[in-house]
Amino acid sequence: MQYRDNLKQKMRNIALAGALAMVLSGAAFASPQDDLRAAVEYNRPVLVQKYVAQGVDPNLNTRDGTPLLVDALKDKNVEVAEALMRAKGIDFERTNAAGENALMMAAYQGLLPIVKLMVETYDVEVNKTGWTALHYAATNGYDDIVKYLIDHAAYIDAESPNATTPLMMAAMGGHITTVKLLLDEGADMNLRNQQKMDVIDFAKRYHQDEIAAGLESRRRKLAEQGAKPAPAQTPAAPTAAVPAAQAGKSAAPDVPTPMPPAKPAAAAPRSPDTVGTPTNMLFDSNR
Results as ranks from 00 to 15, higher is better:
residue 19 A to N: 12
residue 197 M to P: 01
residue 34 D to L: 02
residue 95 T to E: 00
residue 144 D to H: 15
residue 277 T to D: 04
residue 40 V to D: 00
residue 95 T to Y: 04
residue 116 K to N: 00
residue 168 M to E: 02
residue 151 D to H: 08
residue 272 P to A: 12
residue 189 M to L: 08
residue 205 R to F: 13
residue 180 K to C: 00
residue 286 N to E: 14
residue 162 N to A: 07
residue 26 G to V: 15
residue 106 A to M: 02
residue 172 M to D: 02
residue 99 G to L: 05
residue 169 M to S: 08
residue 210 E to K: 15
residue 7 L to R: 14
residue 271 S to V: 14
residue 123 D to P: 08
residue 177 T to F: 15
residue 243 P to Y: 01
residue 60 L to F: 07
residue 237 A to D: 10
residue 188 D to Y: 10
residue 281 M to F: 10
residue 263 K to N: 04
residue 154 A to V: 12
residue 116 K to F: 00
residue 20 L to E: 11
residue 263 K to M: 09
residue 222 L to M: 12
residue 87 A to D: 08
residue 20 L to S: 10
residue 222 L to V: 03
residue 249 K to M: 01
residue 167 L to W: 11
residue 121 T to Y: 09
residue 112 L to Q: 00
residue 92 F to P: 02
residue 256 P to M: 05
residue 118 M to Y: 02
residue 102 A to D: 09
residue 90 I to C: 01
residue 84 L to I: 03
residue 283 F to T: 01
residue 62 T to P: 03
residue 98 A to F: 05
residue 164 T to H: 05
residue 5 D to S: 11
residue 225 Q to G: 03
residue 278 P to R: 13
residue 235 P to S: 10
residue 273 D to L: 14
residue 15 A to L: 15
residue 121 T to Q: 12
residue 220 R to C: 03
residue 1 M to I: 09
residue 112 L to E: 06
residue 192 R to P: 04
residue 168 M to D: 00
residue 132 T to P: 08
residue 275 V to K: 14
residue 147 K to D: 04
residue 271 S to M: 14
residue 192 R to C: 01
residue 3 Y to W: 14
residue 258 P to W: 13
residue 246 Q to R: 07
residue 62 T to G: 00
residue 30 A to N: 05
residue 161 P to E: 02
residue 285 S to V: 03
residue 12 R to F: 15
residue 31 S to W: 07
residue 275 V to I: 15
residue 233 Q to L: 13
residue 25 S to M: 00
residue 81 A to V: 01
residue 198 D to T: 14
residue 53 A to M: 00
residue 36 L to M: 03
residue 58 P to M: 06
residue 65 G to Y: 12
residue 73 L to Q: 07
residue 164 T to K: 06
residue 141 G to C: 15
residue 183 L to V: 08
residue 152 H to F: 05
residue 162 N to R: 13
residue 66 T to R: 10
residue 63 R to L: 06
residue 24 L to R: 01
residue 125 E to M: 09
residue 107 A to N: 07
residue 223 A to C: 06
residue 270 R to P: 10
residue 190 N to H: 13
residue 224 E to G: 04
residue 78 V to C: 05
residue 127 N to L: 02
residue 200 I to Q: 11
residue 263 K to D: 03
residue 93 E to W: 13
residue 246 Q to S: 11
residue 244 A to L: 11
residue 124 V to D: 01
residue 6 N to E: 13
residue 18 G to D: 11
residue 175 H to A: 00
residue 199 V to Y: 07
residue 192 R to E: 06
residue 125 E to G: 08
residue 207 H to K: 15
residue 227 A to E: 13
residue 30 A to Q: 08
residue 66 T to G: 01
residue 267 A to D: 09
residue 280 N to W: 14
residue 205 R to Q: 12
residue 208 Q to V: 06
residue 89 G to T: 06
residue 259 M to W: 13
residue 70 V to C: 07
residue 245 A to K: 06
residue 164 T to L: 06
residue 108 Y to A: 05
residue 226 G to V: 13
residue 166 P to K: 02
residue 199 V to C: 06
residue 183 L to Q: 03
residue 136 Y to M: 09
residue 199 V to K: 02
residue 55 G to R: 05
residue 131 W to G: 03
residue 51 Y to W: 13
residue 286 N to V: 12
residue 163 A to F: 13
residue 72 A to T: 05
residue 194 Q to S: 10
residue 279 T to A: 01
residue 109 Q to I: 09
residue 47 L to E: 11
residue 59 N to I: 04
residue 152 H to C: 02
residue 217 S to Q: 05
residue 126 V to K: 06
residue 118 M to C: 04
residue 210 E to N: 15
residue 139 T to D: 15
residue 183 L to A: 00
residue 157 D to L: 04
residue 80 V to A: 02
